[in-house]
Design a binder for these strands. Structure first.
Ligand code: MN
Ligand code: MN
Ligand code: ZN
Ligand code: ZN
Lengths: 150, 150
DNA sequence: TTACAAATGCAACAATATTGTATTTAGAAA
DNA sequence: TTTCTAAATACAATATTGTTGCATTTGTAA
C-alpha cells in the first residue's frame, strides 16, 4: 500500500500546494493512495464516471505539475498515474525507479525500493533522468500460474 | 546509421519473412534504415502522406510481428519505431537496450551497444523483459547548447 | 496467362486527449 | 455572515491516434 492517509491529510496536501479542496480532487487522491499499483486513465474514468472527463484530465495534470503524482506509460502506451514517493517538487520530479508491468493482470507497480543502477552512456549523451521498465508476472499472478501447473 | 542497405536487400528481407514486395513496405523499410533514430508514427504518416494511414499501421504491425522493427514509446507516450539489431525472431523480440529521449530535438535513440544491467527484483516478481529509458540531451543538442552558453 | 491470397484503399468508428467558454464554487475579504 | 472573485468544474467542440470491415487492386505461384 502506498501509504495510509485519511481525508484530513489529503486536504492538507491540497492546501500545501495551493490547490482548492474540492470533491473531485479529494476522491482522486484517495483512490490513488489506496492502491499499491498505478491507476490507468480509463480505470480512473470508469470509477469516477460522475466526474467530467476533462476535469479528471485537468486534475491529473495539475497533480503531476505539483509533484504529487507521476505518469507512467504501460506496455500498450496507455497512461497510468501513481503517487510520488521521492519528495518530488513542483515541476521537478525524480521518480527514478523500476516500473513493473504485469502481463497477466496488466497492473503497473512502482518499485520505489529499487535504485537505478548507474551506467555510463556513449560519449555526447547527457542524461537528466532514467526510468527502468520491466514486464512479466507480478507476485499474485505468478502464484496463480504456479497453482495452475500443479 | 542503422546499417546501409540497398533496395535489393530490403526486397530480400521481405521475401525472407514471406511478405510480398510492395512499394509502401519498401519505402517504410528504406526510411527506417536510413536514420539512426526511431521514427514516430506521426512523422512517418506525414512523410508518407500518399500512403493510406491504415496501410502504414498494418505495415508497422506486421514488421513488428516479424521481428524487423520494435516499438518504443517516447516520454509523451507517442509510438516510435526502430529497426531491430538483436536478431529478433517472429513474435520473439529481445530489444533490451537503452532508449534515449532527447528533450530538445525529441529524437529517440536506440543505444544497442549498452547492455542492460542485471538487477534483482523484490521477491515474487518474475521479469521476462527489461527496457531502460533515459532522457536528456543527445550529442548534437548538447553541443548546440554548449555553443549558446559561450 | 491465369487465379487467388495477400495487400492496399476507403469509410466508419472507438479511444484518448486538448481547447474554449459558460457556470459553479471555495475561500478570502468585507 | 454576506459578498466578491479567482479558481475549478461542466459542457461542447475538435484533434489525434488507432482499429475494424469490406471492396478493389496487385504480387506471385502455378
Ligand atoms: Mn513510479
Ligand atoms: Mn530500441
Ligand atoms: Zn499481475
Ligand atoms: Zn537532440
Amino acid at each position: 500500500m502506498a501509504q495510509i492517509k485519511n481525508n484530513y491529510q489529503f486536504e492538507d496536501m491540497l492546501q500545501k500546494h495551493n490547490l482548492k479542496k474540492t470533491g473531485p480532487r479529494l476522491r482522486v487522491l484517495s483512490m490513488m493512495y489506496s492502491k499499491n499499483t498505478a491507476t490507468s486513465q480509463p480505470d480512473l474514468e470508469s470509477v469516477m464516471n460522475d466526474i467530467d472527463r476533462v476535469t479528471l484530465y485537468r486534475i491529473l495534470n495539475v497533480f503531476e505539475e505539483k509533484g504529487i503524482i507521476h505518469k507512467v506509460f504501460d506496455l500498450n502506451g496507455t497512461a497510468n498515474y501513481a503517487v510520488c514517493h521521492s519528495n518530488c517538487q513542483e515541476n521537478h520530479h525524480h521518480d527514478e525507479h523500476l516500473h513493473f508491468n504485469c502481463t497477466a493482470c496488466k497492473n503497473v507497480y512502482c518499485l520505489n525500493e529499487l535504485n537505478m543502477p548507474r551506467l555510463n552512456l556513449p560519449s555526447g549523451f547527457e542524461a537528466q533522468s532514467f526510468t527502468l521498465y520491466a514486464s512479466g508476472l507480478c507476485p499474485k499472478c505468478s502464484k496463480k500460474q504456479a497453482a495452475k501447473v500443479n
